[in-house]
Lab assay of single mutants.
Amino acid sequence: HNLTITQGKLFFHYNPKLCLSEIHKMEEVSGTKGRQERNDIALKTNGDQASCENELLKFSYIRTSFDKILLRWEPYWPPDFRDLLGFMLFYKEAPYQNVTEFDGQDACGSNSWTVVDIDPPLRSNDPKSQNHPGWLMRGLKPWTQYAIFVKTLVTFSDERRTYGAKSDIIYVQTDATNPSVPLDPISVSNSSSQIILKWKPPSDPNGNITHYLVFWERQAEDSELFELDYCLKGLKLPSRTWSPPFESEDSQKHNQSEYEDSAGECCSCPKTDSQILKELEESSFRKTFEDYLHNVVFVPRKTSSGTGAEDPRPSRKRRSLGDVGNVTVAVPTVAAFPNTSSTSVPTSPEEHRPFEKVVNKESLVISGLRHFTGYRIELQACNQDTPEERCSVAAYVSARTMPEAKADDIVGPVTHEIFENNVVHLMWQEPKEPNGLIVLYEVSYRRYGDEELHLCVSRKHFALERGCRLRGLSPGNYSVRIRATSLAGNGSWTEPTYFYVTDYLDVPSNIA
């Protein structure tokens, strides 16, 4: 807008934040220059609390790290170098490059900038070799853009010569660093050979998330399962459950009422301010606690030095998902009996873990797994792929695949051998790939016309006998059925096997 004052003059007093240069501009645009008398524009009460600059400061050096910015700028000295009290560095987070010096300023003089007072450097006698002032900004957020400017702080001049310097606002972004852990990993099994893994992005990506790394490792069953005799009275049979499938998407929606109208769909109840505040506090606490764990609990591995020492970490090797089922080394339970199943799973520490690289999504279907087997899954978020990966501390989750139908069934015939004193040795093959492992066998036998009897055969007993022995049988026709019990439950009964026990007292003698 054009402003013209045809008559009258300007009068400025007691404006401590208004620089004289701005008042002189007002004289020019209003056409009143030359009308004012000496005392109409006070030299001592206008701009006496402001830094009124008329020179431009330029930054000469900028260096960044993930949490620091090192700045240096060209030296500046007023005509009387004693008038320079120091520099004021202003900075704040700036997602967009549209910041002005006066953003967030209120009537009390406060604003949204963080201000650092910096002492002037030592003055050199040689004007050509003056030290460049600077400042190291610490405690910054990774991968965050900051708006920065600097200006001088000078003393009051009796001659009211307006001098000083100020830089333009520059924008500097800190470097990326390792992201925080992925949030809320959930693993479920939808079949006997697959596990579905879902997660949420890290709360602090500290860069642009480029991919996720998912490692999985087959877990050995508890050692007590191999040692305890679950045929003993009072000892509860062990059981394991597989990871249940995901709930429906509708039930997972946030901010939804727990109660549904019987007449149909209901609208979600909005969260109160107290609920939102509580969630923010919980989120802040979780982030602080995660940072504490990362800094205190997890110790970084030592990389190899120039002395030739090897990095103890196993090298990563990509495998196809079809090879995942046989990740671990199978060892027989008892070496003397080769027909026992290889369900003991000690994992070799030198073995390469299978892994998958996930790009542009937060889910993965891990296939080719062994049925009813526990897996430990390790999830890392990465925001750099080359020249070397920059990934987060791992988040861990466990899951067990679903049982395989008929995996616990005894394959092959049940054979028998009759000894003296009416002892019958029953023999059968253990299931080759049971659900988890076989903890015991149930032997059901009966003599024709009598009630059915049951015998429990422990895992250890089966390994020693290759089956079991029935003792003290009365003469007669017998039928026997056997079924295995694994961590997933009972298998199917075998087809009945028949044998006849004679009275050993009636056996004919070869003595003449």
Results as ranks from 00 to 15, higher is better:
Arg301Ala: 04
Leu464Asp: 13
Lys460Gly: 04
Asn339Trp: 11
Thr373Gln: 15
His352Tyr: 05
Val501Tyr: 11
Gly467Trp: 03
Ser257Ile: 05
Ser320Asp: 12
Tyr441Gln: 01
Gly467Gln: 03
Gln380Ile: 12
Gly374Pro: 08
Ala463Gln: 09
Asn206Thr: 05
Phe226Tyr: 14
Leu505Pro: 13
Gly449Cys: 05
Phe355Cys: 13
Leu321Cys: 08
Pro244Cys: 10
Cys231Ala: 01
Asn422Arg: 12
Val397Asn: 14
Pro387Asn: 14
Gln429Arg: 03
Lys357Ala: 14
Glu258Asp: 07
Asp506Trp: 09
Lys302Phe: 14
Ala395Leu: 06
Asn490Arg: 15
Trp428Lys: 01
Ile438Lys: 01
Gly467Leu: 03
Asp323Ala: 07
Gly489Cys: 02
Arg481Asn: 04
Pro403Asp: 09
Arg447Ile: 11
Ser392Tyr: 02
Pro238Leu: 08
Ile410Ser: 10
Arg469Tyr: 09
Thr307His: 05
Lys287Cys: 06
Val331Pro: 12
Trp493Cys: 01
Gly476Tyr: 00
His211Cys: 01
Leu232Trp: 12
Glu452Pro: 15
His211Pro: 01
Glu452Asn: 06
Glu351Thr: 14
Asp408Thr: 02
Ala394Asp: 01
Asn206Leu: 13
Leu440Asp: 07
Arg481Ile: 02
Leu470Ser: 00
Val214Thr: 06
Ala263Thr: 11
Glu389Phe: 13
Glu356Pro: 14
Ser474Val: 09
Phe419Arg: 12
Val297Glu: 06
Arg459His: 10
Ser243Tyr: 05
Lys357Asn: 14
Asp408His: 01
Thr343Leu: 10
Gln275Asn: 11
Arg240Val: 07
Glu378Leu: 06
Asn255Val: 05
His294Ala: 14
Val424Asn: 01
Ser223His: 12
Val345Gly: 11
Glu249Ser: 05
Val439Lys: 10
Asp409Ala: 03
Gly368Ser: 11
Leu369Phe: 02
Ser274Pro: 13
Ala336Gln: 08
Cys468Glu: 01
Lys302Arg: 13
Val414Thr: 04
Asp506Ala: 12
Leu473Ala: 03
Val457Leu: 15
Ala336Met: 05
Asp291Thr: 11
Ile418Asn: 05
Lys317Met: 07
Glu442Met: 05
Phe462Ile: 04
Lys357Ser: 14
His352Thr: 04
Ala463Asp: 09
Ile418Asp: 13
Ala263Pro: 13
Ser367Pro: 12
Lys302Trp: 10
Ile366Asn: 00
Phe298Pro: 04
Val457Trp: 05
Tyr396Trp: 05
Ser458Val: 06
Lys432Ala: 12
Thr415Tyr: 14
Glu442Trp: 08
Val359Tyr: 08
Thr373Leu: 04
Ser305Thr: 15
Phe289Thr: 10
Pro403Ile: 11
Leu228Ala: 15
Tyr375Lys: 01
Glu282Ser: 09
Pro238Trp: 13
Ala399Thr: 09
Arg466Met: 08
Phe289Asp: 15
Ser509Pro: 11
Arg353Gly: 14
Ala220Glu: 13
Asn255Gln: 04
Arg240His: 07
Arg313Asp: 03
Gly207Met: 15
Phe285Gly: 02
Thr328Leu: 14
Val501Met: 11
Ala405Lys: 14
Ala399Lys: 12
Lys432Pro: 15
Thr401Val: 07
His416Val: 09
Asp261Arg: 15
Thr241Gly: 11
Leu455Thr: 12
Tyr498Cys: 06
Arg301His: 13
Ser392Asn: 02
Thr307Glu: 15
Trp216Lys: 14
Gly436Phe: 14
Asn383Cys: 04
Val359Asn: 12
Glu430Met: 04
Ala335Trp: 07
Pro300Ile: 04
Arg313Gly: 07
Ser474Asn: 12
Gly306Met: 14
Tyr448Gly: 00
Phe289Gly: 03
Leu487Glu: 06
Leu277Lys: 04
His461Ala: 10
Glu351Ile: 15
Leu232Ala: 09
Glu356Cys: 10
Arg370Val: 03
Arg459Leu: 12
Asn339Cys: 13
Asp311Arg: 05
Ser262Val: 03
Gly368Pro: 11
Asn490Ser: 15
Val324Trp: 04
Thr497Trp: 13
Lys432Ser: 13
Phe355Tyr: 11
Glu281Met: 04
Ser274Glu: 07
Ser486Thr: 11
Arg318Cys: 13
Leu455Ser: 10
Ser304Gly: 04
Ser239Arg: 09
Ala335Thr: 11
Ser367Cys: 06
Ala220Gln: 13
Leu213Met: 13
Gly264Arg: 10
Ile276Trp: 12
Phe285Met: 14
Thr401Glu: 00
Pro332Asp: 08
Glu217Asn: 13
His211Thr: 08
Ser344Phe: 07
Thr210Pro: 04
Tyr448Arg: 10
Leu321Pro: 09
Ala336Trp: 15
Phe462Pro: 02
Gly264His: 09
Ala399Met: 13
Glu417Ser: 04
Tyr375Leu: 07
Ser398Arg: 05
Phe289Leu: 07
Ser344Val: 13
Ser304Met: 15
Lys460Ala: 08
Lys271Asp: 12
Leu437Cys: 14
Ala463Cys: 06
Met402Val: 10
Pro431His: 01
Asn422Lys: 15
His461Trp: 13
Arg318Phe: 13
Val214Glu: 00
Val501Ser: 03
Pro244Gln: 10
Tyr478Pro: 01
Arg447Val: 10
Val480Ile: 15
Ile418Met: 01
Thr386Leu: 13
Pro403Lys: 15
Ser315Pro: 09
Val443Leu: 10
Pro403Ser: 06
Glu404Arg: 07
Arg218Lys: 07
Gly308Arg: 08
Ile209Cys: 03
Gly374Ile: 12
Pro413Thr: 00
Lys406Tyr: 06
Phe246Ala: 04
Phe372Met: 04
Phe226Arg: 10
Leu225Asp: 09
Thr272Ser: 07
Val393Gln: 02
Arg481Leu: 13
Ser203Val: 06
Met427Asn: 15
Tyr292Lys: 12
Leu453Ser: 07
Gly472Tyr: 10
Lys236Met: 06
Arg400Glu: 14
Ser486Pro: 00
Ser486Val: 01
Ser342Val: 14
Ala381Trp: 01
Ile511Phe: 04
Glu258Val: 04
His294Tyr: 03
Leu379Gly: 00
Asn360Lys: 05
Met427Pro: 01
Val480Asn: 01
Ser486Met: 00
Arg459Phe: 12
Arg471Met: 04
Gly476Phe: 00
Ile276Gln: 15
Lys317Pro: 06
Ser268Val: 08
Ser320Glu: 12
Phe285Lys: 14
Leu379Ile: 12
Pro238Phe: 10
Pro434Cys: 03
Ile209Thr: 08
Ile418Arg: 07
Ser315Met: 10
Glu452His: 08
Glu442Phe: 13
Leu225Lys: 11
Thr210Val: 07
Pro346Ile: 15
Leu235Ile: 10
Leu505Cys: 06
Leu364Arg: 14
Ala381Leu: 01
Phe298Gln: 13
Glu224Val: 01
Tyr375Val: 13
Asn360Cys: 05
Gln380Val: 04
Asp450Thr: 09
Lys406Phe: 03
Ser509Gln: 09
Ser248His: 02
Pro431Met: 03
Leu379Lys: 00
Thr303His: 07
Ala405Asp: 04
Gln252Trp: 11
Tyr441Pro: 00
Thr415Leu: 12
Trp242Phe: 12
Pro338Ile: 14
Glu420Leu: 09
Ser251Leu: 11
Ser320Ala: 15
Thr333Ala: 14
Leu440Cys: 11
Ala309Asn: 12
Val345Phe: 10
Ala309His: 14
Gly467Met: 05
Glu281Asn: 15
Ala407Val: 04
Val331Met: 07
Val214Gln: 00
Ser363Asn: 07
Glu224Ser: 04
Lys271Cys: 02
Thr415Lys: 06
Gln275Ser: 10
